[in-house]
Each structure stands twice: as C-alpha cells, then as structure tokens.
Design a binder for these strands. Sequence first.
DNA 1: AAGCGCATCAACCGCGGTATA
DNA 2: CTATACCGCGGTTGATGCGCT
Length: 312
Amino acid sequence: MHGKKDQEHIRKGPWKAEEDEVLLNHVKKYGPRDWSSIRSKGLLQRTGKSCRLRWVNKLRPNLKNGCKFSLEEERVVIELQAQFGNKWAKIASYLPGRTDNDVKNFWSSRQKRLARILQTSATTSKSQKNKTKVPTVLDVPTSEAPKFSSSSEGEPSSKPQSCSLSCIENSDVIKMVPLPDLIKFEMHSSDTNHVEQEFTPFDSYNKSTEQITFPQISELNTDVTFSMGNQDLLARIDEPNFIDVFDPLVASEFGIGPQHSIGFPFFEPSGSCRIGTRDTIDNSKNSHSFFDDFPVDIFDDPMEPPASPSNV
DNA sequence: AAGCGCATCAACCGCGGTATA
DNA sequence: CTATACCGCGGTTGATGCGCT
C-alpha cells in the first residue's frame, strides 16, 4: 500500500564520491535546502534526510573534519553542556566547523571514558581498602551524567547539571555574549572581522535580549579542591594524571591541590587541530609533538562561516 | 602475528516542530 | 482548521581503526 515504490530504491549506508558530487552540485545550484527534491528529481536514491545529514556533517564547507577537539573546544562543550543540556546543535553553533554530530560523539565518547575511569578507580580503590569514603562526585557521573537532561524539556539552564558545583550556583547573569573569555579567544583570535558579523549564533544572541546565565570560568577554576563537579572532572579527563583525582588514598579526599597544575601544554593555539586518534593524552605528555602536530592549513584557513542558505 | 577491547566516526531512526496545501 | 510533507534534532548503532596483550 504505502510506498513500495518509494522504499525500494532508497540507498543507505556510506556515501560514494559520486553521490557527494551530485549532492554538492545540487547545493551549488539551489542551496542547502529542498533536500527531498534531490530524490524526487532522480538525482540520488537517498532520502532528503540522508542528503541533508551528509551535507551538514561532511560536505559543508569549513568543517573541521578529522580534527580532534582542541582543549578550548572541549571546555566550551563542557561548559555549554552544563548550561544547555544535550542541545548538541546549539552547542555546535558556538563551535565553528563543528557539527552537532561531532559534539554529540565527542560528548558520548567522553562520558564513556569518564565512566570507565571512574569504574576502574572505584574498583581499585575499593580493593585497596575502603578507607576514605569516596566523595559523591565519584558516584555522580556514572549514575547521573549519562542521563543528563536527555529529555529536552528540563530547561537545563535552570538546573546546573553538576551536583555540588557551588561555583555554578554562583554564576552571574551575563547579558548577550554568554561566552567566557576563553571562548571569545577562540572566536576572535585569528580574524576579528568576520566573527560576530557572520557567525549566526552570536547574531541571534545579539538580536535577542535574551539573558542567560553562564558560569564564569574564572570562578570555576579558582577552587577545584573539594568542589570539583562533573565539569571539572570532564575538563581534566585528558590530563595525564587525571586518574589521580580518583584515588582517594593519593589525593586524600580530593585535596587535589597543586599537583594538578596543568602544565604545558594545556592550551593549544586557537583552531589547532589534533589529528589522529587518542592522542590527547600523548599530546600532554610529548611536548615535542605539540606544535609539530599542527596541520599545515590551520593558519591560512580562518574558518569561514558555513554558507548560509540565503547566500547560495 | 593474531585476537580482543576500546575509541571514534558516520549514518540511521524516531520524534517533534513547522510550513504548506 | 486539518492533514500532510518536510526539516531538524537527539539518541542510537554498526563499521572501522588502533593499541595492547
């Protein structure tokens, strides 16, 4: 009855180069819209949905494909996730060149890693001797973090996701540009001209008088001892000695203290692009590779904004 | 060298919102 | 006003690659 014909020729799975080409041609002609017309015209045997996804995630210009999240980007994601919840598209809009899929993947992989680390730490410290009561922080990410406002309704801004993050509760109301300094740095560093003008999320914030609360990172960073919540944990997950945090015997109940000084190289140049897999920890260890790993094009590709439908 | 486990990425699915007829 | 189609988003899953044992 329904769409036997419609369904029989729908192609799924990995995209071929020819398909990409067809899709690109369509976008060149008509802009990134009318996705379903691509199939109805017989150009591709893909659903409009699939075409759109391919464009958004892979073919759109200026995507940072294959680049690891920089530390700044990671922090931005962590901050914004705490602020907005799992609004990946929204979060991605603050990260030029990143898609919601990127952010989503990044986050879930990070969550898995965190869960794993926590689990490992919990079991090892338990087996050593459950001498010190492991702080609640330990329990939080495994039980709670994966569920972070999975439903969209819980206006996340009103409920700081991190338990016991007192600094979040102290967040100030920042009007209009809800970005902490490091994010601004990310945005403005290479080209101050085009950023706010062309980067739509800023635009929309500028236009609206919306006020959102945003935890100030300076505050977040000032007192890591005892009040480390998910955000800080997540932010530090890539540090070589991150695991120390969870060893209550070593860290004496999260008196993490100065041994967690981040050390070089914590910050990477804006827009840096860590290529390869699982190099995050290695990057922190191997200072020799810090600058060596920059891709050749990062300094001459100042992230132009994605072509907007109206421009094409 | 092979097998295993983990991390990452790409793509699909379902659902809700919006536009249009 | 209603029905339908389309679009966008978030969650999930399968494939692949890589490192470790």
